[in-house]
């Protein structure tokens, strides 16, 4: 691949032939070390002091499933919502562009927690009031599902951030690519699908990966709207047992494990899709 050999300024010798894609600065892989430390800490605590650590683990186990489910569902929906929002932001149609821009600006200016409160408390009330006024029983008796509303809220919020990532990624592809595709007779969507997006995806993968990790962490906010995720289960355990130190240590370690694996997954995907330029 590389035509020129890098000459190290200090030794004058050519640099050691690291395998492609390996980080050159690290003498050992710090990620494995960190994972090993975190996982063995969890195992050590759970075995050496089953009360309360093992009890905490068993208690929040359902919460892990909920957190993972909420995060992954919201993330997949965010990928779609962000694409629509990003294309809207790039649209030359002033109405579409205006709607997308207002959406992004409004959502980015309101805290995620407040948005979640809106979807969980305010939105169902609006639907109910509307149902009562218009005399539609189906709407008047509307009951919000906490997990559904939490996923909706996170998706609505994170799609705005994702829109900007898509927009920047698409804009980073030279204009000539779209022109070449269009000049071959492809319409806008075919050009996007076959020419622009495959290139943009490689550009936006790192920031999208970061969004996933942020989303995973921010999913703890849904504990405030009655979703029994890890954080909420932790809070329940703490108030029942009065063990704040142990509870939040364990909850923190669980989140850390998940984010560490996510980081690794993102790095792995980046490597796989690297563009041969």
């Amino acid at each position: 691949m590389e035509k020129t050999k890098e000459i190290s300024p200090t030794t004058g010798a050519s640099s050691a032939p690291y395998p492609r894609g390996m980080p050159r600065s690290l003498p050992f892989d710090s990620w494995w070390l960190l994972v090993a430390v975190v996982v063995s800490a969890i195992i050590f605590l759970a075995t050496s002091q089953p009360d309360p650590y093992r009890r905490i683990l068993l208690f929040v186990r359902d919460g892990v499933t909920v957190t993972v489910f909420v995060t992954i569902s919201s993330f997949v929906l965010t990928l779609i919502g962000g694409l629509i929002g990003g294309l809207g932001r790039l649209s030359k149609n002033w109405l579409i562009n205006g709607i997308a821009s207002v959406y992004v600006e409004v959502v980015r200016g309101i805290p995620a927690l407040v948005q979640l409160f809106f979807w969980y408390y305010a939105f169902p009330s609006i639907v109910k009031n509307l149902g009562t006024t218009l005399n539609i029983p189906f709407m008047a008796n509307y009951l919000a599902d906490p997990i559904g509303m939490a996923i909706l809220g996170l998706t609505f919020c994170y799609s705005a951030y994702m829109s900007e990532i898509y927009r920047a990624g698409i804009q980073s592809i030279p204009k000539g690519q779209m022109e070449a595709a269009r000049s071959l007779g492809m319409n806008y969507f075919q050009s996007m699908r076959y020419v622009i997006l495959p290139q943009a995806v490689r550009v936006i993968l790192p920031p999208v990966g970061n969004e996933f990790i942020s989303l995973l962490k921010d999913s703890s906010l849904v504990s405030a709207v009655a979703v029994p995720d890890i954080t909420r289960r932790g809070r329940e355990f703490m108030s029942a047992t009065f063990t704040p130190i142990e509870t939040w240590t364990m909850v923190g370690l669980l989140y850390l494990t998940m984010t560490l694996f996510s980081t690794r997954l993102v790095t792995w995907m980046e490597r796989r899709t690297r563009l041969e330029r």
Binding site: E179, A180, A181, Y194, V195
Partner: peptide, 27 residues
């Protein structure tokens, strides 16, 4: 109408053959 650009504008994520095949397949 075929068009050839100053800056080539080949699709960098596709091989030479795939560059030539893409529009044939789609259009």
């Amino acid at each position: 109408v075929g068009m050839v650009f100053q800056s080539f504008n080949l699709f960098p994520h596709l091989s030479v053959k795939e560059n030539i095949m893409l529009a044939q397949r789609i259009i």
